[in-house]
Amino acid sequence: MLTALAALLLVVLASLALGVRDIDPVEVWRALTAPVAGFVDHDVVLDQRLPRTVVGLAAGVALGTAGTLIQGVTRNPIADPGLLGLNSGASLAVVCAVWIFGVTSPIGYVWFAFVGAAAAAAIVFSVGRGQPVRLALVGAAVTALITPLITLVLLRDQQAFNLYRFWSVGSLTGRGLDTVAMLWPFVLVGVVLAAALAHRLNMLALGDDVATALGQRVGTTRALAAVAIVLLAGTATSLAGPVALVGLVVPHAARRLVGTDYRWIMAIGALLGPVMLLTADVLGRLVLPRSELEAGVVAALLGAPVLVAVARGRNVAGA
């Protein structure tokens, strides 16, 4: 837990201090404490690095928590926001926002992404009726339904296609602090809900019958979890685009670190989410000379080996 906190602090600092432009750590500190207007180094830190760090924190916490909740509720180790159709719902809403309403600024399509994710989740959870296998299958079916719709819009509308090409990679840049200021309450509510549900997930992991026998209202747990998932995953996708693998890898890594108690998995997951996302973002700034790789690509490049390592471990969930 402490290690995870330390790791988080470290990547936050790295995210503020490192980038394409070399900035003296002292100047980074000054930028935060006593900024000088018009000084380029300070502007870079305040206008670029600070917002993307904050976006990364919020989206990372949201993704890590949402992923853990989804796997706990569906009891399916491959479930993540993408598989439940939330990312495709958000994507469809974003391309429609561009195509129909001509919205092009992040602050404009944030709400579309959010509503899209929520709508997809609503379908998935209502048709899935809370049964793990069915839930996962419905999620996949909804994705199968929405993905071609997105493509259809993309084939018709150049502008939407161009925006989507960049949005769908997943990135922390280009979003201002104002976006986070608008969305952070959702993350907060989601995280609080998730924390309250963690104990119930421990029972749920033993099966619906056992959970019921232990006095849990399984339906209520699922409904609350659904609300939290929509809040968290919807926010994350609105903020950073459909970032692949973070929501999937983080719960597995957390389980590997702290065992099977969801209270711990949830806490570690909430920390590992931003660690992973910000690490990806920082690495993306450093690997190419004078240019950047988007956080989404780096997260996938980081996440895939981690997932493989987890899958090869002795105690994979469900093995």
Binding site: G82, L301, A304, L307, R312
Partner: peptide, 23 residues
């Protein structure tokens, strides 16, 4: 379960790379 997990991981990796190349 290992097969499926590894497969899903690689799927996301490929999808990410495709999105990046297209961007």
């Amino acid at each position: 379960i290992r097969f499926v997990l590894v497969g899903v991981g690689l799927a996301y990796l490929c999808a990410s790379l495709i999105a990046w190349i297209m961007a």
